[in-house]
Amino acid sequence: MNKRLKTILFLVVSVFLTRFIPFSSLFRNLDTMIHEFGHALATLLLSGKVLRIELYADHSGVTYSTMLTPGRSILVSLAGYISASLFAWLLFYLYRKGRHMWGLGIITAIALVSLLLYVRGEFGMLWLTGFIALNVVIMIFGAKIVKFYYLFLAFLTLEESVLSAMYVGLLSWTQPSRAGDAANLAQQTFMPAMFWGTLFALFALWCAKGALALFFRKESSSGRTSRARSLSK
Rank of each mutant, 00 (worst) to 15 (best):
A193M: 02
W89H: 12
F190S: 14
G48W: 06
L30D: 03
R72T: 03
W127E: 00
K147S: 13
K147N: 12
A40R: 05
A183N: 05
S222T: 12
G103W: 02
S177D: 14
S14H: 02
N184A: 13
G223M: 14
H35T: 04
S164M: 07
S24Y: 06
A179R: 00
Y118S: 09
S60V: 08
V168C: 08
N29L: 02
L90P: 06
S77D: 06
A179E: 01
L51A: 06
F37C: 13
V119I: 09
L171Q: 08
L9N: 11
S77G: 07
K97L: 15
A143I: 12
L116H: 09
R217Y: 07
A183M: 03
D31M: 10
L91E: 02
Y64P: 05
R229E: 14
G103S: 03
M194Q: 10
R72L: 09
K233Q: 13
G103M: 03
G80T: 01
S221M: 15
C207G: 04
R227K: 09
N2Y: 04
G121K: 04
W89A: 11
G124L: 10
L163R: 13
F203Q: 07
F190W: 14
L51G: 05
S177M: 12
S25N: 13
D181S: 07
A84V: 00
A154T: 00
R217N: 11
K6W: 07
L163E: 09
G130I: 08
E122V: 15
R52M: 06
I107T: 03
E122Y: 13
A154N: 02
T43S: 06
A208T: 00
W196G: 07
S177V: 13
M33G: 05
V162A: 07
G48C: 10
G103V: 05
Y93S: 07
K3T: 11
I53P: 08
Q188W: 12
R120K: 15
L91T: 04
E54V: 14
R120G: 10
G38K: 01
Q175S: 14
L117T: 08
A213W: 10
V13S: 12
F16D: 04
T157N: 11
F131N: 00
R28N: 05
A211I: 02
I132A: 01
T32V: 02
A57L: 12
L128R: 00
T18E: 02
L91A: 02
G124E: 07
L128P: 02
N29F: 01
G71T: 04
Q187I: 05
G48H: 09
Y95K: 03
S177R: 15
G169D: 04
A42I: 03
A42V: 05
V62P: 01
I110N: 01
R72V: 00
L115P: 06
A208Y: 00
S114Q: 10
I53C: 11
A40S: 12
G142E: 02
F27Q: 03
Y56D: 14
L170N: 10
R52L: 03
M1R: 02
G130S: 05
R224V: 12
